[in-house]
């Protein structure tokens, strides 16, 4: 069986241009998968003072071959509510902001997709411009806006809602706002992609068969845009779980997030094994939503036509 497979593989390699096909995969194995394996290895190594700050997993000495592995890094993480809470904070941030992006992004994507062709292209360019503008600068823009002396406070004072500037920065609401703002294009663009190629006859057909506009939306448009919703949600949810910059710029100490914890564990505490264990746990935690997204996408991705 394996023998046959290798035979097939070798014949295949002879036929195809080997380097053309496999260079990129070698690259990814070398610089993506081996580094991941490496942090797995470090995550089950024992911490030590020195450089590198962990004991080698395998050692060959006079006493013979020895494997020096430990699960203590993982046990440490999962026995400390501090780390668990940061995971939960990140997941809840990702969940909340995905929902908000969807609620805000869907109508925009819908109306842009349903505009007349010449207006639609202009609106699309307007959607893409923020997407291209530096991510960091867009987060920074909110830092400027939300300052005590910032424009939002000035407007609120001017309108008489408040008398003193209120502190809007450095809390988790500011983080949610920043995340929704920066990730909104990631939700809108895939949604737009699905809605724009939507067969308008299907809407007419639903109307003709007696469906009122609300029902047409719920029974035809919404189910058929599910792949776009799923793709957009995935593009928002996954990176937000590991988000570091936004909590660092806009957040405060009321909630700590996973990305920031890894950063501190590595750069501040210099504890490589714990940082690696945190990263590995992060991957494991992300596998579930990724698999769910993939399965849902496969289930609802109907070929239009």
């Amino acid at each position: 069986m394996i023998h046959q497979y290798f035979g097939l593989m070798i014949r295949y390699l002879k036929k195809q241009n080997f380097w053309f096909v496999f260079t990129p995969y070698f690259w990814l194995i070398l610089f993506f998968f081996i580094p991941l394996a490496l942090i797995f290895k470090i995550s089950i190594s024992v911490s030590e003072w020195g450089m590198p700050p962990y004991r080698d997993l395998f050692s060959l000495s006079e006493e013979g071959f020895k494997i020096d592995s430990t699960l203590s890094n993982y046990l440490f993480i999962f026995s400390d509510p501090f780390y668990i809470r940061s995971y939960l904070n990140s997941l809840s941030l990702a969940f909340t902001s995905t929902i908000l992006c969807l609620v805000i992004g869907y109508p925009i994507a819908f109306y842009v997709a349903k505009s007349q062709a010449n207006i639609r292209i202009i609106l699309l360019v307007l959607l893409i411009i923020p997407f291209w503008t530096s991510f960091l600068l867009r987060v920074y823009a909110w830092k400027v806006l939300l300052q005590g002396s910032g424009i939002i406070n000035s407007i609120l004072i001017h309108l008489g809602f408040i008398t003193e500037p209120i502190s809007m920065l450095h809390n988790h609401y500011a983080v949610i706002l920043g995340v929704v703002y920066t990730y909104l294009p990631f939700m809108i663009l895939p949604l737009y992609g699905y809605l724009v190629k939507f067969d308008l006859n299907l809407i007419d057909a639903a109307n003709d068969l007696g469906a009122k506009p609300v029902n047409t939306f719920l029974k035809v448009i919404l189910p058929l845009s599910l792949p776009g919703i799923i793709a957009g949600s995935m593009l928002v949810f996954i990176p937000v779980v590991g988000e570091f910059v936004i909590p660092e710029m806009l957040g405060g100490s009321d909630k700590l997030y996973f990305g920031k914890i890894i950063w501190d564990e590595f750069f501040v505490n210099r504890d490589w094994p714990v940082a690696s264990a945190l990263a590995m746990s992060g991957i494991v935690i992300l596998i579930f939503p990724i698999v769910i997204f993939q399965l849902m996408y496969a289930k609802y991705n109907f070929k239009n036509e």
Binding site: G242, G259, I283
Partner: peptide, 19 residues
Amino acid sequence: LSSSPLVMPEIILGLSLLL
């Protein structure tokens, strides 16, 4: 192989590459 980097949070990617 080719699509895994799409779903890897950058903080984990950065850490693993540095190590």
